[in-house]
Structures are given as structure tokens and as C-alpha cells.
């Protein structure tokens, strides 16, 4: 058998040692470490803290950072150090929950639209366009008003339900393009059903292209929560989040208490930067495998 294969050219796989610096663009170690620290801190710190972030100690209001209050206290006498971690819990969970929800909706709508006949696709996409053309903050405030008093779940729901449109469009475009490719035709020939094709061929290919957008949605959701809370339309003042902490900013600035604004703001900005960095890296690594051809 072997000499016959010699005729058709059996070639051994040339195993090469990976050249140094093979990966273009280094991994965002700093960003990942910071995010991990934030997540861990937010999960564990509230268990370890001795001070209740919600308790108002009016004898110690607007205190500068010192030995007792590491990050100082706000104008209502709450300990900012404790608030950062319990507030981060709220902000991050809204970010992740809202993104998870919007991604599920986006993939479902995009896949249906991509696989649907032309008229249904057009209908779904025009509806998406309409939703996309309404300023999302307006819709969020409207929906939140309809839902009543805001809490983490309702806010995630509202932010998630308004943030899926652009991802859905990308999914739909990718699916529409991929479904005419020859490997999908080949999979159909061998008897693969729609679900098999979606799961094995389409999803791995479009997930790479929406990864960056999904990560950016985490950022968007955190910003949306902060914006809403800052405007007073989001979480009530007694539910501590990074956004609601910032809502005290005007008072703080007039009182000359920089730490009330600067410290939560710094954490927010650093987290957003880390998420962006992670998203950038994901985008780079998603495009890497295909660049060989």
C-alpha cells in the first residue's frame, strides 16, 4: 500500500517549532488582571467589609481620605471604599446581565433573519432599523418608567432589550454570507440540518466577528447604567452603584470634595479601559487564523 501512496505523494507533516514572537500583539495581561481583580473584589469584598456601604454616618460626612475612611466619605457620610466594591458589584452585574440578554436576542434575531426568505429578512431588518434609529436612552427611560421602580434585574432587562440591534445586524449579514458558502452546501449535501449548520458552521464563524461588539456592549451597559443613575432615572440613591455614586458629583464639586467624584470615576474609567483593551485583543485574535491565505 505504501509504495502506491508514494506515487500520489505522501508527505509527512513538517512540525516546526513555533517561532519566537509568533503571536502578533501581546495579550492584554494588565487589562485582564485588573478586570479579574475588580470582579473578585466585587464578589468577595462585601463579605469582608466591616462598614455597611449604605449606612449613613452623618457625623462623618464628606471626610477626606484618611486611615479610617480609605477613600473618604461622601456628602451623606457613606464610606466610599465600601461603596466602590458593593457598587462595582451592581455596575458589573448590570453590564454582564444586560450584555448576555442582548447577545441572546441578537443571535436569535440575526440567525432567523439571515436564514429566512428574502421578504421576512427584509421585514425583520427594517424593524431593527426602526428600533436602531430611536435614541436608546430615550427608550430605556421610557421602558424603565413603565416597569416602575428600578432594580438590577429590571435595569439589565431594559438595557439589554435596547442594545441588541447592531449586533443582530452583524449576525444577520454574516449568516447570509456564510450560508451560501460551499462548506455549508457540502454540509447540506451530507445531510446536515439547519440546526447542525447553525451550530457547527455558522455560529463559530459569526461569533468571532461579534465578539468585539459583545465586549463593547458590556462597556455600553455599564455606561448606560451610570448615565441613568447619574441623571437620577436609574437605580435609587440608596442602591449603591458607580453611577449613583457619581450622581452626587455636583454636590461634591461645590463642596470641594474631589474624592467623591474622582475615585468612583477612576474605577469606572479604568474598568471601561480594561474591557476595551480585552475587546481589541479579541478582535485581533479572531482575525488571525484567516490571514494565512
Amino acid at each position: 500500500m505504501d509504495e502506491r501512496f508514494a506515487l500520489v505523494g505522501l508527505c509527512p507533516a513538517a512540525e516546526q517549532a513555533a517561532p519566537k514572537g509568533r503571536r502578533p500583539g501581546k495579550r492584554p495581561a494588565l487589562a485582564a488582571a485588573f478586570l479579574a481583580l475588580m470582579v473578585l473584589g466585587c464578589l468577595l469584598f462585601p463579605l469582608l467589609l466591616t462598614k455597611d456601604p449604605a449606612s449613613m454616618d452623618l457625623s462623618n460626612y464628606a471626610r477626606e481620605p484618611d486611615g479610617t475612611f480609605w477613600f473618604g466619605t461622601d456628602t451623606m457620610g457613606r464610606d466610599i471604599f465600601a461603596m466602590i466594591w458593593s457598587g462595582g458589584r451592581v455596575s458589573l452585574s448590570i453590564g454582564f446581565l444586560a450584555t448576555a440578554l442582548s447577545t441572546v436576542i441578537a443571535v436569535a434575531v440575526g440567525a432567523v433573519s439571515g436564514l429566512a426568505p428574502r421578504w421576512l429578512d427584509a421585514l425583520i431588518m427594517r424593524l431593527t432599523d426602526i428600533l436602531l434609529s430611536i435614541p436608546s436612552l430615550l427608550v430605556i427611560i421610557l421602558l424603565q418608567a413603565a416597569l416602575g421602580r428600578a432594580n438590577i434585574a429590571s435595569l439589565s432587562l431594559v438595557i439589554g432589550a435596547t442594545g441588541w440591534m447592531s449586533v443582530a445586524r452583524v449576525v444577520r449579514t454574516e449568516v447570509r454570507q456564510l450560508r451560501t458558502s460551499e462548506y455549508v452546501a457540502a454540509a447540506r449535501c451530507m445531510g446536515g440540518g439547519t440546526f447542525h449548520i447553525l451550530r457547527r458552521h455558522l455560529a463559530p464563524n459569526f461569533l468571532a466577528s461579534i465578539m468585539f461588539m459583545v465586549v463593547m456592549n458590556v462597556r455600553g451597559a455599564i455606561v448606560a447604567e451610570s448615565t441613568l443613575s447619574f441623571m437620577g432615572a436609574g437605580l435609587p440613591l440608596d442602591t449603591v452603584s458607580w453611577g449613583s455614586m457619581l450622581s452626587l458629583a455636583e454636590n461634591a464639586l461645590t463642596a470641594g470634595a474631589w474624592w467623591i467624584v474622582l475615585i468612583p470615576g477612576l474605577f469606572l474609567v479604568a474598568t471601561l479601559l480594561a474591557v476595551t483593551e480585552l475587546g481589541e485583543w479579541l478582535r485581533r485574535s479572531a482575525n488571525r487564523g484567516q490571514s494565512n491565505l
Partner: peptide
């Protein structure tokens, strides 16, 4: 079974 002309598009790059 079918074999296509262009193997770069008839094989899923992510498999």
C-alpha cells in the same frame, strides 16, 4: 458526495 473546486471555501476554516 461532492468535492468542490475551491477547497479554501469548501472547508470550514474554524474546524
Amino acid at each position: 458526495q461532492i468535492i468542490f473546486q475551491d477547497s479554501s471555501s469548501s472547508l470550514d476554516q474554524r474546524m
